[in-house]
Simulated assay, not measured.
Amino acid sequence: MKSELYDHEPLEQDILQRYGDSSEDIMEESKKKMEQWTRKDEIESQAQVDRVNIQLKGAIEAGLAPSSPEVQQIIHRHFKSIGRLYKPTAEVYRSLGELYVSHLDFKNIFDSYHPNLAEYLRDGMKIFAKEQL
Rank of each mutant, 00 (worst) to 15 (best):
S112T: 03
A90H: 09
F128M: 07
P69S: 09
P10C: 12
L104Y: 12
I82W: 01
A118H: 02
I43G: 05
Y86T: 13
L16D: 06
K40T: 02
V101E: 07
N108M: 08
D111Y: 08
D21Q: 11
K87S: 10
E29S: 13
L64K: 11
S102I: 08
Y19M: 00
I15G: 13
L5Y: 02
L104A: 12
Q73M: 12
M34L: 02
E70D: 14
T38Y: 00
S22N: 12
S22T: 09
K107C: 01
D50P: 02
S3F: 06
H8Y: 11
E131I: 03
H78D: 13
K40H: 10
H103Y: 15
E42W: 00
Y93C: 11
V71M: 12
S45C: 13
Y6G: 07
D7Y: 09
I75S: 10
E98Y: 11
T38P: 00
A62E: 15
I74M: 06
Y6A: 09
R122S: 12
T89K: 00
V101Y: 13
A90P: 06
E131M: 04
K2W: 13
I60Q: 04
M34H: 04
L16V: 04
L85P: 10
L133T: 05
G124R: 03
S102F: 06
R39Q: 10
F110E: 14
Y6K: 00
L56A: 01
V101G: 10
S3D: 15
E29R: 05
K31M: 14
D105H: 06
P10W: 01
E91Y: 08
D105S: 07
D41C: 01
P10T: 09
A59D: 14
L56Q: 08
R51I: 09
Q13P: 00
R94M: 15
L104V: 15
K107Y: 04
A59V: 07
A90C: 02
K107I: 02
D41V: 07
I60L: 05
E119Q: 14
K80G: 14
E61C: 00
L133K: 08
S22F: 12
N108P: 04
R18D: 08
E119G: 13
R39K: 04
P88F: 10
L121D: 02
N116V: 07
F110V: 08
Y120Q: 04
D41Q: 01
D14P: 07
A129R: 03
V52L: 00
K2E: 14
E4L: 06
N116I: 02
Y19L: 00
Y100W: 14
